[in-house]
Design a binder for these strands. Structure first.
Lengths: 191, 191
DNA sequence: CGTGGAGTTGAATACGATCAACACCGGTGG
DNA sequence: CCACCGGTGTTGATCGTATTCAACTCCACG
């Protein structure tokens, strides 16, 4: 909770008093590795802030194969804003890659915050824009880059993460099989 | 311009008077097919609303191959919000697929609007969320679906567009070669 | 007309997927 | 303590899908 407050104060001009008005809408929970927080096609009222640990979001294709959309390490947000803000069914699953500490942020928080902290809206659009930017970058890569380039881009953009995440998950994130990733890594190691 | 006003009135609670306050920040222009509105890695202060015609955004990979990010037909918006709002270099190119009529929306408009029309912010986040949702859907497809599935999804999600856009562009949007698309289509036609 | 881009088709190729086998490690329980 | 197990990662062989390169048709447009 303190970590989230610190994060928010860093990102916005929110004061301790303003934050106090919102704490009712927040809950901190420990989440065990493997625990699922959000199931696709269900409705949710929660966004997750990761204080410690690592969450991920992913979809399942008709063959039941996972495709990782996003990793959320410490000090990052994850969740389906559409589902929260507009009460639509969630587009993806969210679960814990590591034992984690997570702040659950509900819709009321998102509704109240802009009225309490003047630049919360700005912060929020900034976050959205940033997500959009990030995911568009990935789209470009998937459209135009080879497995090797995508892998290099991943370790570049997610320093440290490659040590915490299994290659199965990295492969899923890159859109290739674990075997292919293994071969890409071997080839790169030779250089 | 009238079309844009109509669109905005449809999406928000904006009044004629409120809109009038903002018209100074808008310019309508005719854009010829092939004309480029935005060049990647440059800064821009403009977002584009398409009244008539068709725009697209795309990136170039290191081989100079185009990868289409988005099509923007009538009554839709396109542009790099990040570049506009946070003065960052644009992530992609924007040009005209057809002769078009476009409303140029500048940063000042985006800054003023929330103060003039109370639910403009809400509308704006809704748009952003929607883009995010759309692009995440595409990401899932690229990660998990075959060329055929992606094509079927495209014609499903963009009814009519497949008649206005060359197969070269559709292929680029789907992340396959025009030849592959041709074969996919032949295979589907046989059914 | 003739030219050039769009779309199709074929043949050869390449890249990644699939299937299968195996080494390795960490944890569990006999 | 060791045997066993499941999951991870590696490697090899084979397969399949999409790419590449090339040739050809068709049409719109000058």
């Amino acid at each position: 909770m303190e970590i989230f407050k610190k994060y928010l104060k860093n990102q916005t001009s929110i004061t301790d008093e303003q934050f106090a008005l919102l704490t009712l809408e927040l809950k901190t929970k420990k989440v065990a590795r493997g625990e699922t927080l959000l199931v696709a096609n269900t409705r949710t009222k929660l966004i997750y802030f990761v204080c410690k640990g690592l969450l991920r979001s992913y979809t399942l294709d008709r063959n039941g194969k996972e495709h990782i959309i996003q990793f959320a390490p410490e000090a990052s947000l994850i969740g389906d804003r559409n589902s929260v803000c507009f009460d639509e069914p969630a587009q993806f699953y969210v679960d814990a890659v590591e034992d984690s500490e997570v702040v659950f942020i509900n819709k009321k928080f998102m509704d109240l915050a802009p009225g309490i902290c003047e630049d919360f809206s700005t912060y929020n659009t900034l976050r959205l824009n940033d997500s959009l930017r990030h995911i568009q970058g990935r789209l470009s890569l998937l459209l135009g880059a080879t497995a090797e380039e995508r892998y290099l881009n991943f370790i570049d953009q997610h320093p440290g993460l490659s040590l915490r995440v299994s290659q199965i998950m990295i492969a899923s994130y890159l859109g290739i099989t674990p075997e292919s990733l293994s071969r890409v890594r071997r080839k790169l190691a030779k250089k």
